[in-house]
Amino acid sequence: MRRLLAAAAAAAVLLSACGDDAQDRAPADPTTTTESTATATTTEIADEAPTSAAPTTVTPTSASAETTTAEPAPEAAPAPTTAAPARPAVTACDDDGLSQDILGFPGGVSVDFCEDGWAFAAYPNAPGAPEFIAEQVDGRWFHAVAMGDPVCQDDLSARGAPAAVSKLLPPCVDAPAPTAGPTGSPTDPVAACVVSTKEYGDTHADLVAVTCDGARAEWGLAEANTEPSWTIPWVTPTGWECFVTPYDATSKAAGSCYGPDGTAYFTLYLP
């Protein structure tokens, strides 16, 4: 009997313990439950609402760069270039070269020899075939001195002539004296032709195939339109080439002029 009562009491105790365990069991860990709930809630919000991320700066891109192709910049126009001035053609030192430059046509000059831009030549078709010395200036030939002009060796050397050309003239101490020339009419008596010059005053003209009035006219045009020069002649409107001598206290002539065909010329001697 005691055993039955003891067993019943033990069973009652066990039943009572089970009921209390079911009622009095501690709830689940609130921290774990809260975190799980927060995580689930955060995940749902993330799926439904846009993420509020830290602001970032986005560099705008050029619409033209995305939609159009940039045209290449126009090439700069090349800088204008200044063409170098054409050098004058150098005329050959031969018969036709001198004739074309001095007379304006070929066949009127016969060249004896040339040296360093100077030539000794003659006009074979003119009366007496007068000889002369020519000089080349800027590639062109000019009648420089007629043989018999009052120009001596030192004068020509000072103008740059080589010794082989200068020696064709008389030494300066032996320069020819001025001579009288014919006047306008063949019947007039021989008299000195006086031509007034700016640089040297009155001069006496030695005339060859030209009248005194003609010489004055050509000289007046030349002296009024050109600067004095040993080497550069001035061509008058009628084709005469005139050298106006720069002032020199030792000069024996004020200048000279030569006709277009080489047969007429005159020199102005100092008194």
Rank of each mutant, 00 (worst) to 15 (best):
G181N: 07
A164H: 00
S64P: 00
A84W: 00
W219F: 12
S185E: 14
E75M: 10
L103T: 06
A217W: 02
M1P: 10
L169F: 05
F113N: 10
T34N: 11
E241P: 00
T68G: 03
F113Q: 09
Q100D: 07
L15E: 03
A49R: 10
L103N: 02
G104S: 04
V194P: 00
I232A: 10
G262W: 00
G108P: 01
D202L: 11
Y258W: 06
A192F: 03
Y258T: 09
C242N: 10
F113V: 06
P189D: 15
E35I: 15
W141L: 05
W118I: 04
A144S: 13
V235I: 15
T179A: 15
T197E: 03
L5M: 11
V151S: 05
L5G: 09
A76S: 14
A28W: 10
L103W: 02
C193Y: 03
F243K: 08
A77G: 08
A89M: 09
P78I: 08
G97S: 05
C93T: 06
G148H: 06
S157H: 03
Y265A: 13
G255C: 08
V151R: 14
P246E: 08
P74Y: 05
P228Q: 08
L268G: 09
A119G: 07
E115R: 11
D138G: 10
A9N: 01
D94F: 04
E75W: 00
E75Q: 13
A83R: 13
A146L: 03
A126D: 11
T82C: 01
V210E: 09
S110T: 13
T33I: 15
A54D: 14
E135Y: 01
G220I: 01
T69A: 14
A22K: 05
C172G: 06
T197V: 08
S251L: 01
D261C: 01
T82Y: 02
P50K: 07
Q153R: 15
E44W: 04
A10V: 14
T67C: 07
A129T: 14
G97F: 02
T39D: 13
P30C: 05
A54M: 10
A209K: 13
A119V: 09
A134Q: 05
A76E: 15
L5C: 09
G259R: 02
C242T: 10
A63R: 07
A209W: 00
V58K: 09
W234R: 02
A126N: 14
E218H: 06
E35L: 15
D248H: 06
Y258K: 05
G255Q: 09
G128S: 10
K198G: 12
D149G: 10
A253H: 13
T267H: 11
A12G: 14
P106I: 00
P60N: 08
A53M: 05
P127L: 04
V194Q: 11
S36T: 15
A129K: 07
A9W: 04
F120K: 04
E115C: 01
S110V: 03
L15Y: 04
A254Y: 06
A175C: 11
D154V: 13
T61K: 07
T245S: 11
T42D: 13
A205Q: 09
A264R: 05
T250I: 02
E71P: 12
